[in-house]
Design a protein around this nucleic acid. Sequence first.
DNA 1: GCCCAGGCACTCA
DNA 2: TGAGTGCCTGGG
Length: 299
Amino acid sequence: MNLNSDNNPLENLIAVIESDKLAHLSLVQTMQSGQHFRSKVLDDDSIIVVNQYGLYRMKEDTSGLSIYGEHLFDYEAYFDMNRDYEQIQEILSRKDPHLEAAIIMNKGLRILQQDPFEMIMTFIISQSKQISQIKILVERLSHLYGDAAGAYKEVAYHMFPTPEQLIGVDEVIYKALKMGYRSRYLEDAVKKIVTRTVDLAAIKSMSYEKAKAELMQIKGVGEKVADCVLLFGYGRFEAFPVDVWIERIIGELYFDKKPSKKELNDFVDDYFGAYKGIAQQYLFEYARTLALGKNKPKN
DNA sequence: GCCCAGGCACTCA
DNA sequence: TGAGTGCCTGGG
């Protein structure tokens, strides 16, 4: 492996997204939201990203967003650039001042289109974990079982492993890797996906309800994880992942009391409509920034 | 030492 | 349908 930065592919400019296209695309806002765990900010503010296509270095400045790497990849698909975020933001902003403020603060936040298998494993791992810990565990799994993706500044990076690469990994091994009680879930996920008990390709053409039920056949995949997979792995904006934070925020902003599960779901369907998924991300980041929902409701 | 973290499975009413 | 509890592990 060539660690000489002069010849390093991550010094090789492969694409520039012009600044006039960046009104609704911020690399930092997108990469640092909780949909993505495989990027690293360097001292010069460029960001190393490992995604389903390979290893890249990206940097945003006044001239635009520059992408460095060995091969060009479909960054338009990855950054969801064919969706009209401006229109979505306009529609959602009109709903209420909270949502409007949330959007102003996160104007460049987009939903990345990532690999479904990676999303399944990552969000199983994420249960009761903080982002920093999720990153460490995902990194560990990739280093041990994924293909080498390259190196930069003497740090090696690896692709997220494929289901086939994880076939022999059982619960005992996952436990040794500190995956805790999620270990049997991870083993079950790989088994069901390799045997097509859960068909990841077929999910693309299923209805939202059917796709969700398909994913929830995997042990350890409940409503929240399934919705994250559908949103970040399949671009399904009907998915609205409800975690403890979102539950508290929605309760705080739109209800006087803690809503029941049904009340919350009915409200979300009705209020955010077809853009539930992205609305969830705006609200989540908004609440995280303002530390809303920090106090647990007393019911 | 204790509590909690961006859930889920399981049990019980 | 909802409330309660255990589960691995690491950090504050």
